[in-house]
């Protein structure tokens, strides 16, 4: 099953709000997937199909995970942006 992590500095606030909206866009398209939150530090030992994060975090995250798997969201409340980027990443996975 599709596995997604929403990543932020603490894994408590920002990533949680991001997770809610990722789940929303997956549900719209009836895409089955598990979405969880994690802090940047704790993400090191984990694997997923997609890691979703914010602009400042992306470089650190790319040191720990394949850049190809990382999606960057500028405005978590912009559902249009979340939809486009998440569904784009899911499509890319399905092609591979």
């Amino acid at each position: 099953m599709l596995k997604i992590y929403a990543v932020c500095g603490h894994g408590l606030g920002s990533s949680m709000m991001l997770k809610i909206n990722i789940r929303k866009v997956l549900k719209e398209k009836s895409i089955e997937g598990e979405v969880d939150t994690v802090s940047l530090g704790e993400s090191s030992g984990l694997d997923a199909d997609i890691f979703v994060t914010f602009p400042d975090i992306v470089d650190e995250l790319a040191n720990r995970h394949d850049r190809e798997k990382i999606v960057v969201i500028d405005d978590f409340s912009d559902l249009e942006e979340v939809r486009e980027k998440i569904l784009g990443a899911v499509d890319k996975l399905n092609l591979n």
């Binding site: 932020c8 500095g9 920002s14 709000m17 991001l18 940047l40 914010f54 602009p55 400042d56 975090i57 405005d75 978590f76 409340s77 912009d78």
Partner: peptide
Amino acid sequence: NGPYVVLA
């Protein structure tokens, strides 16, 4: 961690 805390 940077100013990503400006979440929206």
